[in-house]
Amino acid sequence: MNSHPASSAYRLYADGAVVSYLQWRSGAGWQLWRRGHGWRPVDEDAQPAHALDAAADALLGPPEAGPVRPARRCELHVRGLAADVVPVAFPETITVRTGDVSILSGDFDDRGLNRIVRRVALLGGGVLALFEEGPS
């Protein structure tokens, strides 16, 4: 079983407002709180990034299915994310931070890139720019 600090909690946003909370609860795993629904399990033993993806699915519905382009080198410039959240919420990326801007880079297909963009928005951040190279 993975161990998470008791303080593992995230405010989740939609349209700039906090709409939900995701929290690691000892003995219960990742729990999602929504107004009118209370606390509900999201994932018993997932890493934070996977729990955020499950929370996004619960709040926004699953990502749209469709054709997927091959993986390619991508670099996202994002703003508004706490420095301590970025490496935990985006473990599949290489991250660099300057001021309030984090640069998330890696090789992603469309689904992987979609998951990252959804996590950025859910955590209250915004994508400033996306740079892509050809297939990796």
Rank of each mutant, 00 (worst) to 15 (best):
N2P: 12
N2G: 02
P5G: 01
A6T: 02
S8H: 05
V18T: 00
V18Q: 01
S20I: 01
Y21I: 00
L22A: 01
L22H: 02
Q23N: 02
W24M: 02
S26Q: 09
G27M: 10
G29S: 03
G29N: 01
W30I: 01
W30N: 00
W30F: 01
Q31K: 05
W33G: 01
W33R: 01
R34E: 07
R35Y: 08
R35Q: 04
G36M: 13
H37I: 03
G38F: 04
G38H: 09
R40P: 03
D43V: 08
D43N: 05
D43G: 06
D43M: 03
D45E: 04
D45T: 07
D45W: 06
Q47P: 03
P48T: 02
A49E: 07
A51S: 07
A51Y: 06
A54M: 08
A54S: 10
A56P: 08
L60K: 11
G61P: 12
G61T: 15
P62R: 15
P63Q: 10
E64S: 08
E64W: 10
A65G: 12
A65K: 11
G66E: 08
P67F: 13
A71P: 15
R72C: 09
R72T: 11
R73Y: 08
R73S: 08
R73P: 05
E75C: 15
H77D: 14
V78I: 14
R79T: 13
L81C: 14
L81T: 13
A82K: 15
A82L: 15
D84A: 10
V86H: 10
V86S: 10
V86M: 11
P87F: 00
V88L: 14
V88R: 15
A89R: 10
I94Y: 10
R97C: 15
R97P: 07
T98N: 15
G99T: 12
G99E: 14
G99M: 13
G99H: 09
L104S: 07
L104D: 05
S105Y: 14
D107V: 02
D109R: 01
D109N: 13
D110W: 04
D110F: 09
R111C: 05
R111F: 15
G112D: 14
L113R: 07
N114I: 07
R115Y: 06
R115N: 11
R115T: 11
I116L: 14
I116H: 09
R119K: 04
R119L: 07
V120T: 13
A121N: 07
A121I: 10
A121H: 08
G125N: 12
G125H: 11
G126P: 09
L128F: 12
L128A: 13
L130A: 05
L130Y: 04
E132Q: 11
E132K: 04
G134K: 03
S136W: 00
